[in-house]
Design a protein around this nucleic acid. Sequence first.
DNA 1: GCTAATAGTCAGTTATACTGACTAGTATAG
DNA 2: CTATACTAGTCAGTATAACTGACTATTAGC
Lengths: 151, 151
Amino acid sequence: MSKEKSYPEQHRSIGALLRIPFQYLAQEVYGQLARSGHGEVRASHSVVFRYILPEGSRITELAERAGITKQSMAALVAHLEIHGYVRVEADPIDGRAKRVVLTKQGELVQREALRLSREVEKQWARLIGEKEMIRLRQLLEKLYDKLEVRV
Amino acid sequence: MSKEKSYPEQHRSIGALLRIPFQYLAQEVYGQLARSGHGEVRASHSVVFRYILPEGSRITELAERAGITKQSMAALVAHLEIHGYVRVEADPIDGRAKRVVLTKQGELVQREALRLSREVEKQWARLIGEKEMIRLRQLLEKLYDKLEVRV
DNA sequence: GCTAATAGTCAGTTATACTGACTAGTATAG
DNA sequence: CTATACTAGTCAGTATAACTGACTATTAGC
């Protein structure tokens, strides 16, 4: 009757329970962005859009928040700059530093990515129930807040 | 009072709500495994341990279930074979095929990874509340089941 | 003003995915 | 029963996204 299952599948590890929806979401969001002409914005760039402040942020700042090295962040920013999603300006106060600022196109993608992720949430609400989806989000928010402190 | 927040941070995208706990979990589980001498088992190998059947599985089978190419799966399996976590045998029925089977050490790591992920769940239960963690898992399971059909 | 710290770059490496072309067996249609 | 199509897996090459270590330029602190 039931299909053959591996040992961890039977036990439904929390890892897969978090990973599968995340992968699904990423595919939806970045797939849609690619189809609307923003194929050069990939999932790895999400941290730039996520952590950049309205008035702009430094590379080091972004790297720290994203939990990656400044070299890695510099590469992400360089890619987004080439493709017109961010501008990189010299910091007027600190001669060592640069400010990364979203362009109009970058702001558009930032809003669009958020809109698409909300679309997926709505879709999920249809699958598991509206109330359930709200509760799921609440619980994830609670966990996120507790974890953010120590991560 | 409140720290400066970027636009998506204010809106708490579901992507980050899933990703942050997942990353935390992966770090805990694979960090612990590394500390107990299994540093060659990395997060990418989790799909092998996750989908392999007790009597063994084929590369192509595993690749399909994991949603990666057979070449990528072959590389993961080769790595685990070199380090003693799986055995690769010729399929007695089908001359083209091979069977990937967990070794004793592989079974140990499979169980250990699951145990560690349950430890993290317990830790999270202490952070957000026992009932809340149970509910969170239930909701993720529900979503997972609905998504698995279409993924 | 010297020294330490900080912002960012350059060069090289590793891990993990991908595509395309291939070999070797298996299944099937005529 | 053989020619052809399909399937399992490999080999070779590429892209992406991370890493470390060594470096330059600038700022801050004593």
